[in-house]
């Protein structure tokens, strides 16, 4: 543990229920400001569910219930006074399947900025769009066709467009839910490169079922199994000398 670790999000004793079914059991985990945190584990282990509690996207699922405490910069995000809309503007999300809106590239990126009134003028909005697309590494590819539909881009470009859309509202945290699982290896490499570039500017948590990807992009790795957080810690250390037997079995390919 060499870097000074400032926690952006602190989760304590979090459990999630879908109806009577408990998906997450008593998970406590911090997301650091300056380090990328990867969630790994076999399918159905609860890693995506836990990610979605961090910006309350589970609220959109009927019957979902969250217990425990999650604090963003010390504020409880499940407190009754918390505005979900503002929370999601601060904690952005990128999904498994690229989901651009059926609008132009420009409008996709400008969407959040318009909703939150981030730009007063057309010029300011143009600047927001250009900055977000630049940070998402897409500007050079699309700057001459901002009016084209976002859905006409390739899969990898669509995913970077979605990252740009998240960046455009100037979030503090970006959550990524298996962002590369629908992409080919070249597009995947491009997204991983992008995650390196974004580190430090945003706190980042990424769910992946690809252990090599977790090793490449993250500094902290959390291993989930059967709804529990089995172990978490420095990525290099977790992959080379796991403390728990279950972690070792998983990363050596015994199951999952």
């Amino acid at each position: 543990m060499t870097l000074p670790n400032r926690s952006k999000i602190e989760a304590k004793g979090v459990s999630v229920f879908y109806g009577d079914n408990q998906a997450i059991r008593d998970v406590s985990l911090n997301i650091d400001q300056d380090r990328v945190t990867a969630f790994i584990g076999p399918s159905g282990c609860g890693k995506s569910t836990f990610l979605r509690t961090l910006n309350r996207m589970n609220d959109t699922i009927a019957g979902a219930r969250v217990e425990g405490e999650i604090r963003l910069d010390g504020d409880d995000i499940y407190a009754s006074g918390m505005d979900v809309v503002e929370l999601r503007a601060r904690v952005g999300m990128v999904f498994q399947k690229p989901n651009p809106f059926p609008k132009s590239i420009y409008e996709n990126v400008a969407y959040g900025a318009r909703i939150h009134g981030l730009a007063r003028s057309r010029e300011a909005l143009d600047a927001v769009v250009e900055q977000a697309l630049t940070r998402a590494g897409l500007w050079n590819e699309v700057k001459d066709r901002l009016k084209d539909s976002g859905t006409a881009l390739s899969g990898g470009q669509q995913q970077r467009l979605c990252i740009a859309r998240a960046i455009a509202v100037d979030p503090e945290v970006i959550l990524m839910d298996e962002p590369c699982s629908a992409l080919d290896p070249i597009a995947t490499a491009r997204i991983e490169e992008l995650i390196h570039e974004l580190r430090g500017r945003y706190a980042i948590a990424i769910v992946t079922h690809n252990m090599q990807q977790a090793a490449r992009v993250s500094q902290v790795t959390a291993f989930f199994h059967m709804g529990q957080l089995v172990e978490h810690g420095d990525t290099a250390q977790l992959f080379t000398s796991p403390r728990e037997e279950r972690t070792k079995d998983y990363i050596t390919g015994r199951y999952g």
């Binding site: 503002e86 999601r88 952005g92 999904f95 399947k97 809106f101 059926p102 959040g112 909703i115 979605c162």
Partner: peptide
Amino acid sequence: PAGMRDGSLAVGATLSETVTRV
């Protein structure tokens, strides 16, 4: 697709903004 609704909600749009704009 549900992804579109999620995408809009995830940038902090309210449900009515999501409905009318997306």
